[in-house]
């Protein structure tokens, strides 16, 4: 992988790149279009999106580290089953943790916490990266991808909450008379907002490639 603009950072350029690529160049949502189920379903408010993103990032980091450290121990034939087992464990832990933080938040995120188990983003990082790389690199990769996912979910959640509920993080941002666009907090709004961000992202990349 060619290091891009990250060479000014002092660390080893190739490992910094493992971190940076998930944030932008290979962003899980905007570029790889992975993990669409939580992206569309629970990004209806900034706080839900952030909580979901952080929960996913935690599971991603922990499972990547564990998969990477066990990569010489897991036989090839049962690797997927093992990965799922590891991922499901961390998802269960996150589920308990969120319940312990706030019952309301847990109610809002609902079944989508448990569905992190089948989030293709996590399995794809375990299979494509962690099973072939060192623990350190896997952790950096997961951190980058996880934060990239948080960033993308937040972009969606913020737009949807501002337009659909006239607020951000529950704080009202528009005057009383503002008409909320209810569609934005409905599932359909998730598709529209995602399409809008993908459009902006691709448009930006095209322009940059031309220049």
């Amino acid at each position: 992988m060619t290091p891009t603009k990250t060479t000014d950072l002092k660390a080893d350029p190739s490992s910094t790149d493992e971190f940076i690529k998930g944030l932008w160049r290979e962003n899980p949502v905007f570029v790889q279009v992975l993990g669409m189920c939580p992206t569309l379903a629970v990004s209806n408010s900034a706080i839900n999106a952030l909580a979901m993103g952080l929960a996913t990032a935690f599971v991603l980091i922990m499972s990547n580290v564990l998969v990477s450290s066990l990569r010489n121990f897991i036989p090839k034939q049962v690797r997927i089953a093992s990965y799922i087992l590891i991922i499901a464990t961390f998802v269960t832990m996150v589920d308990y943790a969120i319940q312990a933080i706030s019952v309301d938040l847990h109610k809002n995120l609902g079944a989508f916490i448990s569905l992190i188990v089948v989030n293709c983003l996590i399995l794809s990082r375990a299979e494509a990266f962690a099973s072939k790389n060192t623990i350190g690199k896997s952790a950096l990769d997961a951190l980058g991808m996880g934060l990239g996912f948080v960033f993308a979910l937040f972009c969606l959640g913020a737009v949807r909450e501002i337009l659909g509920n006239a607020s951000i993080f529950g704080i009202t941002v528009f005057p009383e008379s503002f008409q909320e666009w209810i569609i934005m907090i409905l599932p359909a709004g998730g598709f529209f907002t995602l399409a809008f961000w993908l459009f902006l992202f691709n448009n930006y990349k095209l322009k940059k490639a031309k220049a």
Partner: peptide
């Protein structure tokens, strides 16, 4: 359909 979902009251 968009308007119906966005502004159900109006």
């Amino acid at each position: 359909a968009f308007l119906q979902a966005a502004f159900p009251v109006a």
